[in-house]
């Protein structure tokens, strides 16, 4: 579309100046919290232990990998670090859905920025934090292996995503604080399975098994996306129900 015509249309629709605009906007009450402010406010509600744990994971990986000499550790570092990651996922999931544990869901659903947005704001921050942690761990781990970033990434992502997926499935089944124990058992189970797998099948980190890792990551990621979608829909429906009950 020609700029001249667009400007012509703009000019044609331009109304006369509104004389009361300045005074009206000066005197009108406006909500003080905008969307950026809301997002930043959510950062304060994420408990410090989440960041501390991420930092400790990175430090532990660094110290562990520094002790290994190149080639000596082979795939040991992958499964040991991989066995830790379910607990990182556990902190992420439990921090995201903590409103339900404390019986605050209804209250948060009825606010201007509803629980839906609160959860997705927290996911944004925790997810970004975990992404940085995983990237640092991946870079550190990859240095001791000759598997390349892609394969090492798959080996590390699998236990993390699997824990997230299983915890999110569990969050839909078990409501309230009882869920905490379930999440903890899930994280411990995935961690133990990751360790067991290494002992039961020594060649599990060989390229022949790549399809298994790819499949696990794909399925886990799919479940996470599906569960988040379900949670969003469920909360939308609940907030409408609350609105109708006002």
């Amino acid at each position: 579309m020609k700029r001249k015509l667009r400007n012509g249309i703009r000019e044609a629709f331009e109304p006369p100046k509104s004389p009361g605009k300045e005074a009206f906007l000066r005197n009108i009450w406006q909500p003080t919290l905008d969307y950026r402010g809301f997002l930043l406010s959510q950062l304060h509600y994420i408990r410090k232990r989440v960041w501390i744990l991420s930092f400790l994971f990175v430090m532990y990986s660094l110290l562990f990998l520094l002790k290994q000499t190149e080639g000596s550790c082979s795939y040991e570092s992958v499964w040991i670090i991989g066995a830790m990651l379910p607990f990182l996922a556990l902190t992420a999931v439990s921090e995201t859905i903590k409103s339900g544990w404390w019986g605050m869901q209804e209250l948060e659903l009825s606010c201007r920025y509803s629980l839906n947005q609160v959860i997705f704001a927290r996911l944004l921050f925790i997810g970004s934090g975990n992404l940085i942690t995983l990237t640092v761990i991946l870079v550190l781990t990859e240095k001791t292996l000759s598997a390349g970033f892609f394969r090492t990434g798959l080996y590390l992502l699998t236990p993390y995503l699997l824990t997230c997926a299983l915890c999110l499935i569990l969050s839909g089944r078990v409501r309230g604080r009882e869920g905490r124990y379930g999440y903890a058992v899930t994280a411990a189970g995935v961690s133990a399975a990751n360790s067991l797998l290494r002992y039961l099948e020594h060649s599990v980190y060989q390229p022949d098994y790549l399809i298994f890792w790819l499949f696990s990551v794909g399925i886990s990621a799919g479940i996470i996306v599906y569960r988040l979608h379900c949670m969003k829909k469920e909360m939308e429906a609940r907030s409408w129900n609350l609105y109708l009950a006002e």
């Binding site: 109304p15 509104s18 605009k21 009206f24 009450w29 406006q30 201007r112 609105y243």
Partner: peptide, 23 residues
Amino acid sequence: ASVAEDLTQETFLKFLQQNSYRE
């Protein structure tokens, strides 16, 4: 213009008075 201005201001007042809008 004057009716449009009144209606615009009424629109904002109505929006801010009600509490049915979810962000």
